[in-house]
Amino acid sequence: MQQRPPAEPLLAIEAVSCRFGGLLALDAVSLQVQEGEIFGLIGPNGAGKTTLFNVISGLTPPSGGRVLWRGTPMSRPSPERVNRLGIARTFQNLRLFDSLPVIENVLVGLHHAARQPLAGALLASPAFRRRQAVLRSQAIELLALVDLAELADQTAASLSYGDRRRLEIARALATAPALLLLDEPAAGMNPVEKDDLCALIDRIRAHFALTVLIIEHHVPLMMRLCDRLAVLNFGERIALGTPEQVRHDPAVIEAYLGGQP
């Protein structure tokens, strides 16, 4: 039951290509992410999923095509500018600030809104201290959301794998994004943790009015979680649609089963 699409997608990828030497990691990929949806990106290893995230987040300049944010092309995107536009991400190979306490990892992200008079900060004025206390309680709230409030003072490096994945999500949320990019957030988790993660993603989407773009190999989970899915294979977008449409797409079956009848 297709509704009338909103006038403008939140994020539009238009014919984005990305070449590394002889390898075409992305081949004129186009897709549009609507505000409020959970959009899934699946595909075999090396399909170019992470590369697409890197292009969106300003880490890898595309060799062709463009990315539009709320209808406007991103000009000379750098990672920090992309983040300030309202796009936050997590990393497939966890990139936390390992030597910092858990709460500091989140506080780093909260600072987007924390510009303060320099003099007040240098002199530790009462206003500055109040503001710091507010930031800390916001950080604790975010940590509580991902069940890490108890571990706030441990160093990030000391956390278990699943905890680290959720801390990365909390850290990304701290930058108050409108669009959250999750790169294999369930990798390395057991089935119970995966279910919890699904619930968490649903919860944060509702809580923060988020749009989510998620990469994940676990197809059943994606079918359940996502409103729409795109399938990449060797840098090409071979399918796009609702989970039901994608499930029955012959190109997808071909890509996943390697051409077996």
Partner: peptide
């Protein structure tokens, strides 16, 4: 700790 991640945090 991680310059790239820091830039992605704005």
């Amino acid at each position: 700790d991680d310059e790239l991640a820091a830039s992605c945090m704005g």
